[in-house]
Amino acid sequence: MSKCRSVTSLLVAGLFAACLEQSTDAAEHSFTYPTTYDSGRPIAIEREQELRTTIPPDGFGLPEGQGTFTEGRAIYASKCQACHGDALQGTAVGTALVGGRGSLSSDSPKKTIESFWPYATSVFSYIRNTMPTIAPGSLTDEESYALMAFILASANIISTDEVMHKDTLAKVRMPNRDGFVPDDTLDIEVPMAGD
Protein backbone atom coordinates (compact mmCIF):
# COMPACT_ATOMS: atom_id res chain seq x y z
CA MET A 1 0.00 0.00 0.00
CA SER A 2 2.80 2.35 1.00
CA LYS A 3 4.60 1.49 -2.23
CA CYS A 4 1.47 2.36 -4.15
CA ARG A 5 1.28 5.63 -2.39
CA SER A 6 4.86 6.55 -3.13
CA VAL A 7 4.37 5.70 -6.80
CA THR A 8 1.30 7.86 -6.81
CA SER A 9 3.04 10.75 -5.15
CA LEU A 10 5.90 10.44 -7.61
CA LEU A 11 3.43 10.57 -10.45
CA VAL A 12 1.68 13.57 -8.94
CA ALA A 13 4.97 15.33 -8.36
CA GLY A 14 5.92 14.62 -11.96
CA LEU A 15 2.66 15.96 -13.29
CA PHE A 16 3.02 18.99 -11.08
CA ALA A 17 6.49 19.63 -12.46
CA ALA A 18 5.16 19.21 -15.98
CA CYS A 19 2.42 21.72 -15.22
CA LEU A 20 4.95 24.17 -13.87
CA GLU A 21 7.01 23.75 -16.98
CA GLN A 22 3.92 24.34 -19.12
CA SER A 23 2.97 27.46 -17.27
CA THR A 24 6.49 28.81 -17.83
CA ASP A 25 6.04 28.14 -21.52
CA ALA A 26 2.66 29.83 -21.43
CA ALA A 27 4.30 33.21 -21.75
CA GLU A 28 5.03 32.29 -25.34
CA HIS A 29 1.38 31.43 -26.08
CA SER A 30 -1.16 34.01 -27.05
CA PHE A 31 -4.41 33.96 -25.11
CA THR A 32 -6.19 36.71 -26.97
CA TYR A 33 -9.15 36.68 -29.31
CA PRO A 34 -8.12 37.46 -32.87
CA THR A 35 -9.51 40.49 -34.65
CA THR A 36 -10.70 38.29 -37.49
CA TYR A 37 -11.53 34.59 -37.74
CA ASP A 38 -11.69 34.21 -41.49
CA SER A 39 -14.72 32.04 -40.92
CA GLY A 40 -16.68 30.35 -43.68
CA ARG A 41 -16.48 30.69 -47.45
CA PRO A 42 -17.60 33.39 -49.88
CA ILE A 43 -21.06 32.89 -51.42
CA ALA A 44 -20.86 32.37 -55.18
CA ILE A 45 -22.16 35.52 -56.87
CA GLU A 46 -24.71 33.56 -58.92
CA ARG A 47 -26.37 32.41 -55.70
CA GLU A 48 -27.15 35.98 -54.60
CA GLN A 49 -30.43 36.20 -56.51
CA GLU A 50 -31.63 32.84 -55.20
CA LEU A 51 -31.00 34.07 -51.63
CA ARG A 52 -33.29 37.10 -52.07
CA THR A 53 -36.42 35.41 -50.86
CA THR A 54 -37.90 38.27 -48.80
CA ILE A 55 -38.67 41.04 -51.26
CA PRO A 56 -38.80 44.52 -49.67
CA PRO A 57 -41.54 47.03 -50.66
CA ASP A 58 -39.38 48.71 -53.32
CA GLY A 59 -39.16 45.39 -55.18
CA PHE A 60 -35.41 44.89 -54.83
CA GLY A 61 -34.65 41.29 -55.74
CA LEU A 62 -37.88 40.60 -57.63
CA PRO A 63 -37.19 37.89 -60.21
CA GLU A 64 -37.65 37.99 -63.97
CA GLY A 65 -40.86 36.63 -65.44
CA GLN A 66 -44.46 37.76 -65.53
CA GLY A 67 -48.02 36.56 -65.08
CA THR A 68 -51.57 37.50 -66.05
CA PHE A 69 -55.00 37.36 -64.42
CA THR A 70 -56.12 34.54 -66.73
CA GLU A 71 -53.03 32.43 -66.02
CA GLY A 72 -53.43 33.14 -62.32
CA ARG A 73 -57.07 32.08 -62.32
CA ALA A 74 -56.15 28.65 -63.72
CA ILE A 75 -53.32 28.16 -61.21
CA TYR A 76 -55.55 29.30 -58.36
CA ALA A 77 -58.23 26.76 -59.35
CA SER A 78 -55.80 23.86 -59.32
CA LYS A 79 -53.49 24.80 -56.42
CA CYS A 80 -55.19 27.29 -54.08
CA GLN A 81 -58.96 27.01 -54.29
CA ALA A 82 -59.26 23.88 -52.13
CA CYS A 83 -58.11 25.86 -49.08
CA HIS A 84 -58.96 29.47 -49.93
CA GLY A 85 -62.38 28.89 -51.58
CA ASP A 86 -63.74 29.36 -55.09
CA ALA A 87 -64.32 33.07 -54.47
CA LEU A 88 -61.14 33.62 -52.40
CA GLN A 89 -63.44 33.91 -49.42
CA GLY A 90 -61.52 31.44 -47.25
CA THR A 91 -62.46 28.08 -45.76
CA ALA A 92 -61.93 26.33 -42.45
CA VAL A 93 -58.33 25.59 -43.42
CA GLY A 94 -57.35 28.63 -45.48
CA THR A 95 -57.68 32.35 -44.77
CA ALA A 96 -59.89 34.71 -46.78
CA LEU A 97 -57.82 36.57 -49.38
CA VAL A 98 -60.36 39.25 -50.30
CA GLY A 99 -62.98 41.38 -48.58
CA GLY A 100 -62.89 43.19 -45.27
CA ARG A 101 -62.12 46.68 -46.55
CA GLY A 102 -63.18 49.26 -44.01
CA SER A 103 -63.48 46.66 -41.25
CA LEU A 104 -60.20 47.36 -39.47
CA SER A 105 -61.58 50.06 -37.19
CA SER A 106 -64.64 47.96 -36.35
CA ASP A 107 -64.87 45.60 -33.42
CA SER A 108 -64.24 42.62 -35.65
CA PRO A 109 -61.52 43.52 -38.13
CA LYS A 110 -61.37 41.19 -41.12
CA LYS A 111 -57.73 40.91 -42.14
CA THR A 112 -57.22 39.84 -45.75
CA ILE A 113 -54.76 40.62 -48.54
CA GLU A 114 -57.32 43.15 -49.77
CA SER A 115 -58.01 44.85 -46.46
CA PHE A 116 -54.82 44.48 -44.45
CA TRP A 117 -51.56 43.58 -46.19
CA PRO A 118 -49.71 46.86 -46.83
CA TYR A 119 -47.37 45.70 -49.62
CA ALA A 120 -47.87 43.47 -52.66
CA THR A 121 -44.20 42.43 -52.39
CA SER A 122 -44.87 40.80 -49.00
CA VAL A 123 -47.71 38.78 -50.50
CA PHE A 124 -45.55 37.76 -53.47
CA SER A 125 -42.69 36.61 -51.20
CA TYR A 126 -45.02 34.68 -48.95
CA ILE A 127 -46.81 32.92 -51.81
CA ARG A 128 -43.60 32.09 -53.64
CA ASN A 129 -41.78 30.89 -50.50
CA THR A 130 -44.45 28.85 -48.78
CA MET A 131 -47.47 28.04 -50.94
CA PRO A 132 -49.27 25.77 -51.43
CA THR A 133 -48.83 24.38 -47.93
CA ILE A 134 -48.81 20.77 -49.18
CA ALA A 135 -45.93 21.57 -51.57
CA PRO A 136 -44.24 24.65 -50.10
CA GLY A 137 -41.92 26.58 -52.37
CA SER A 138 -43.08 24.70 -55.48
CA LEU A 139 -44.53 27.67 -57.38
CA THR A 140 -42.38 29.13 -60.14
CA ASP A 141 -41.70 32.85 -60.34
CA GLU A 142 -44.10 33.04 -63.30
CA GLU A 143 -46.83 31.24 -61.39
CA SER A 144 -46.32 33.54 -58.42
CA TYR A 145 -46.66 36.64 -60.61
CA ALA A 146 -49.79 35.17 -62.22
CA LEU A 147 -51.35 34.47 -58.83
CA MET A 148 -50.60 38.04 -57.77
CA ALA A 149 -52.35 39.34 -60.90
CA PHE A 150 -55.37 37.14 -60.18
CA ILE A 151 -55.62 37.86 -56.44
CA LEU A 152 -55.02 41.62 -56.73
CA ALA A 153 -57.59 41.95 -59.52
CA SER A 154 -60.08 39.81 -57.60
CA ALA A 155 -59.57 42.22 -54.71
CA ASN A 156 -60.25 45.17 -57.03
CA ILE A 157 -56.77 46.57 -56.40
CA ILE A 158 -55.63 46.30 -60.03
CA SER A 159 -57.56 45.69 -63.25
CA THR A 160 -57.83 42.24 -64.80
CA ASP A 161 -55.65 43.26 -67.75
CA GLU A 162 -52.67 44.38 -65.71
CA VAL A 163 -49.67 42.07 -66.09
CA MET A 164 -47.58 41.50 -62.98
CA HIS A 165 -43.80 41.51 -63.27
CA LYS A 166 -40.89 43.03 -61.41
CA ASP A 167 -41.64 46.58 -62.55
CA THR A 168 -45.39 46.55 -61.97
CA LEU A 169 -45.66 44.57 -58.75
CA ALA A 170 -43.76 46.98 -56.51
CA LYS A 171 -45.85 49.88 -57.86
CA VAL A 172 -49.15 48.37 -56.72
CA ARG A 173 -50.59 50.51 -53.95
CA MET A 174 -52.37 48.34 -51.42
CA PRO A 175 -55.51 49.76 -49.73
CA ASN A 176 -53.99 49.54 -46.24
CA ARG A 177 -50.62 50.92 -47.33
CA ASP A 178 -50.68 53.59 -44.60
CA GLY A 179 -52.31 51.42 -41.96
CA PHE A 180 -49.19 50.58 -39.94
CA VAL A 181 -47.30 52.60 -37.35
CA PRO A 182 -43.93 51.61 -35.94
CA ASP A 183 -43.96 50.86 -32.24
CA ASP A 184 -43.14 54.02 -30.32
CA THR A 185 -40.37 52.29 -28.39
CA LEU A 186 -38.50 51.57 -31.62
CA ASP A 187 -35.34 53.70 -31.72
CA ILE A 188 -34.74 53.26 -35.43
CA GLU A 189 -36.29 54.68 -38.57
CA VAL A 190 -38.60 52.51 -40.64
CA PRO A 191 -38.20 53.64 -44.23
CA MET A 192 -41.19 52.81 -46.39
CA ALA A 193 -41.22 52.26 -50.14
CA GLY A 194 -41.71 55.44 -52.11
CA ASP A 195 -41.14 57.70 -49.11
Partner: peptide, 18 residues
Amino acid sequence: TRGYTDTLPDGRSRQFSF
Protein backbone atom coordinates in the same frame (compact mmCIF):
# COMPACT_ATOMS: atom_id res chain seq x y z
CA THR B 1 -47.27 42.92 -41.45
CA ARG B 2 -50.09 40.37 -41.48
CA GLY B 3 -48.73 38.35 -38.57
CA TYR B 4 -47.23 39.82 -35.42
CA THR B 5 -48.78 43.29 -35.43
CA ASP B 6 -51.20 44.82 -32.96
CA THR B 7 -54.37 46.46 -34.23
CA LEU B 8 -55.27 49.69 -32.42
CA PRO B 9 -58.77 51.11 -31.83
CA ASP B 10 -58.55 53.40 -34.90
CA GLY B 11 -57.85 50.43 -37.19
CA ARG B 12 -54.16 51.13 -37.68
CA SER B 13 -51.73 48.47 -36.50
CA ARG B 14 -48.65 48.78 -34.34
CA GLN B 15 -45.66 47.18 -36.03
CA PHE B 16 -42.21 46.08 -34.80
CA SER B 17 -43.32 45.92 -31.17
CA PHE B 18 -40.32 43.80 -30.31
